[in-house]
């Protein structure tokens, strides 16, 4: 589904991503983990086109997407949930959900169904549909950011630290959402996350990054048994 091959991404003169390669197979949930600042977020941003790589190639469904403008990539079926939520503060919850959907061709009926579906995952958003985004609490904004991505039936979901700063209750419910998405097998997921427990619980494949490079790749079952690896790269 998604193949990242030998990409290098720079921020000014900083070499953030150094020869990074990984892939996300259809229907799987792949996690990218590592300490702060190793380049995980940049990797996701490179995929969605916000920080394009200067070398290397990224293909989605065997189509080259490196260097395409972000809006073009998004229209191909990738949905991005950024690290700092970034919901549109002066749009209502409903309008936030509509931003993604209005770009694709849905009939009004389909839109309604999508919204209803997404609200089953995030029921707390339901009563707030007409409230402005900036009136929501931090946790609710995170839900909205997630919902905004889900509501367009994405082929590939890109999550950047979705659990960050959430109460344990919300973390569990997000975990359930992820499991449910996996069960339906309609969406492939690439997740960047610090919460190792959740990562081990939901991922199929895990890549560990350090200083801009991929240092380890393995299945989550293996990692669960092999604590030393996690200790080495994450100090866990």
């Amino acid at each position: 589904m998604l193949k990242v091959k030998n990409i290098h991404t720079y921020y000014g003169k900083s070499h953030i991503l150094d020869d990074v390669s990984f892939e996300v197979r259809k229907g799987t949930l792949v996690s990218l983990i590592g300490r702060n600042g190793v380049g995980k977020s940049t990797a996701v941003k490179s995929i969605i086109g916000l920080t394009p790589p200067s070398e290397g190639s990224i293909t989605f469904k065997d189509k080259e997407i490196t260097g395409l403008p972000a809006y073009h990539i998004a229209k191909m079926g990738l949905a991005y949930v950024p690290e700092d939520r970034r919901i549109f503060p002066e749009l209502t919850v409903f309008e936030n959900l509509m931003t993604g959907m209005s770009v694709k061709k849905y009939t009004p009926a389909e839109r309604e169904t999508n919204i209803e579906e997404v609200l089953t995952y995030f029921p707390s958003l339901g009563p707030r549909l007409n409230q402005n985004g900036d009136t929501l609490s931090g946790g609710e904004q995170q839900m909205l950011a997630f919902a905004r991505a889900l509501v367009v039936d994405p082929v590939l979901l890109l999550l950047d630290e979705p659990m960050e700063g959430l109460m344990p209750v919300l973390v569990s419910s997000l975990e359930e959402v992820l499991k449910s998405l996996k069960a339906k097998a309609k969406t492939s997921i690439l997740m960047v996350e610090q919460n190792t427990e959740v990562v081990l619980s939901v991922s199929d494949n895990i890549y560990i990054m350090e200083k801009g490079k991929i240092k380890y790749e393995g299945r989550s079952d293996d990692l669960r048994q092999n604590n030393s690896v996690l200790a080495k790269y994450l100090g866990v």
């Binding site: 809006y71 073009h72 991005y80 970034r86 993604g100 770009v103 905004r148």
Partner: peptide, 12 residues
């Protein structure tokens, strides 16, 4: 409100 995010959503 957020032109980067708008692009990431698919708005040209």
């Amino acid at each position: 409100q957020d032109h980067e995010m708008a692009a990431a959503i698919g708005i040209s």
